[in-house]
């Protein structure tokens, strides 16, 4: 009597077909997905550098100092650094928000996971009579899979 069901050959062919379709599809997802992560990190690093550069323009000239590598972590940044506190939407200290596990848990986890840090490479030239210029290299570093990434932004800050 003829039995219904699948033969071994049919199963092998079906699995081969599924794998043939599945793996390239997954690679496509993988490539696209990783590109999304990289772009997000790149954009974030640029926005961090821009935020630092804007702060440099308004902060006292003598306060612009070298921050050597490996730099300062953005999460748990100490008070007085560029990211401690992160923002304050109120007029009082009650509205201060720091990048800590308590205040901003998701943002904190993201920064800690990728180890986002900033460094400043400062060169100071004095031309006499109070005419000074600082060249500041803003270096944002982070870890992406097995790579150490860096985004650089250079700004010139003259004495005001």
């Amino acid at each position: 009597m003829k039995k219904s069901g699948f033969s071994l050959l049919e199963i092998v062919i079906a699995i081969s077909l599924a794998v043939t379709i599945f793996i390239p599809a997954m690679n496509m997802f993988s490539t696209a997905g990783q590109a999304v992560y990289k772009t997000r990190n790149f954009s974030f690093a640029n926005s961090v550098a821009r935020r630092i550069s804007q702060r440099l323009m308004v902060m006292p000239f003598e306060d612009i100092e070298e921050v050597p590598l490996p730099g300062v972590a953005l999460c748990d940044a100490p008070d007085g650094s560029f990211f401690g506190p992160f923002f304050n939407n109120t007029a009082s200290s009650a509205g201060l928000r720091r990048i800590t596990q308590v205040d901003m848990p998701e943002f904190y986890d993201y920064l800690e996971r990728y180890n986002f840090r900033y460094s400043l490479s400062v060169s100071n030239v004095s031309f006499g009579d109070g005419d000074e210029i600082k060249s500041v290299g803003i270096l944002i570093t982070w870890n992406e899979t097995d790579k150490a990434m860096m985004s650089r932004l250079y700004v010139y800050v003259p004495t005001l």
Binding site: V36, A45, P70, Y114, N115, T145, A148
Partner: peptide, 25 residues
């Protein structure tokens, strides 16, 4: 596959200066 599995590093590893970086641009 698509998760960017950057491992959470210890404090010592996080502050270690790598031999090189990759320019993001």
């Amino acid at each position: 596959l698509i998760s960017d599995s950057a491992p959470v590093r210890s404090q010592a590893e996080a502050t270690k200066i790598p031999s090189h970086w990759v320019d993001s641009s």
